[in-house]
């Protein structure tokens, strides 16, 4: 059996390598990188977007601000009548086009040295992207904190980093530094594997929920993956119903199960020191049961709520 496994382990990559070699051999060679026709006598012709000739005459891939890659994106799909032109976003650029050495900038720019207000820059995007998931942009935290659309999005490239599940967190970490550290803690969501990313839970364009949650509340957002916690149960644990984040930090923790603090300390932030609930943390003796393994949940296993209707003992202590 072991031999078969090893053969398979070796054979599968080998087969794929062969297939790849075959594909490479069959496919045509790429086009040569011939220079674009830059005959100065020709009037500027549109290359991608309607009316882009006066821009693309200078801004080819060799300029400081290459723009042709926009043609690879949805903004470059001219069959869609809604597709913008250069001036839709940058304004009419007569002064820029005519100024010596292009010292005068276009009416609206989006780079680091832009003199346009953030509100003005964003208005170019919102002219088309105001509805749907961006309905609540106005008044959102990001809008109020002068975050420009182009702080996160790159328009003239085929791959917008923030829309790629592998790279999106890097963009968010540009401002949210604390999260950069939390996601690598021992107990975490699979964020660095790209299986859970910021926008799975947060709508950076604003929402009707708190903390820009994609659903209407923190709990409703958590339920999109952890619906088993929703209940309602015969016996509910009140903080569970109110806000998952009372006990959990979803961005990463050093306590198991993304708990903000370990047992028994976390539980003691609410629970009366009746008898055993008040014991201090210890790794030895009888009360180690409150600290080691699952801590208080060694006995109170159903801490998210129990749907056990049996009439045997006080089931409200979540023991089964």
């Amino acid at each position: 059996m072991l031999t078969i496994i090893k053969i398979r382990q070796i054979a599968v990559p080998g087969l794929l390598a062969f297939i790849l070699a075959f594909i490479i051999a069959v496919l045509p060679q790429p086009v040569s990188s011939a220079e674009l026709d830059d005959d100065d006598d020709d009037p500027p012709q549109d290359l991608i977007l309607r009316g882009d000739g006066k821009c693309t005459a200078c801004h080819d891939e060799n300029s400081d601000n290459p723009i042709l890659a926009i043609g690879k994106t949805k903004h470059g799909t001219t069959a869609d009548h809604r597709t913008p032109t250069c001036t839709s976003c940058h304004g009419e650029g007569g002064s820029h086009e005519d100024s010596p050495d292009k010292a005068l900038m276009p009416q609206r720019t989006f780079g680091k040295k832009s003199v346009n207000s953030i509100e003005d820059r964003n208005s170019a995007c919102l002219a088309c992207h105001q509805g749907g998931k961006r309905m609540h942009w106005s008044g959102s935290t990001h809008a109020n904190r002068d975050v420009a659309c182009t702080s996160c999005h790159t328009i003239h490239t085929e791959q917008d980093k923030v829309r790629n599940r592998n790279t999106q967190p890097e963009v968010c970490f540009n401002c949210h530094k604390e999260m950069r550290q939390l996601i690598n803690r021992p107990y975490r969501h699979p964020i660095r594997e790209g299986k859970v990313i910021c926008s799975d839970c947060h709508n950076p364009h604003g929402s009707a929920g708190p903390s820009k949650m994609v659903r209407d509340s923190i709990n409703d957002t958590c339920y999109t993956c952890h619906m088993e916690k929703r209940g309602p149960f015969v016996y509910n644990h009140p903080p569970v119903q109110e806000n998952c984040a009372i006990c959990h930090n979803p961005h990463g923790t050093t306590a198991p199960n993304l708990l903000r603090t370990r047992s028994p300390f976390l539980c003691q932030q609410c629970h009366e020191p009746n008898t055993h609930q008040g014991s201090s943390g210890t790794l030895t003796g009888a009360y180690a049961r409150n600290t080691l393994a699952r801590g208080c949940a060694n006995c109170h296993t159903q801490v998210h709520g129990s749907n056990m209707p049996e009439n045997i003992r006080n089931e409200s202590v979540f023991q089964r």
């Binding site: 794929l16 297939i19 790849l20 045509p28 674009l36 991608i48 891939e61 690879k72």
Partner: peptide, 23 residues
Amino acid sequence: SSGADADPLKELSKPRSVVNIGA
């Protein structure tokens, strides 16, 4: 389907596909 399209503009402005394979 790609044919011998030698338009350099296409290279710069048309969507590109990538396959990445290895071991």
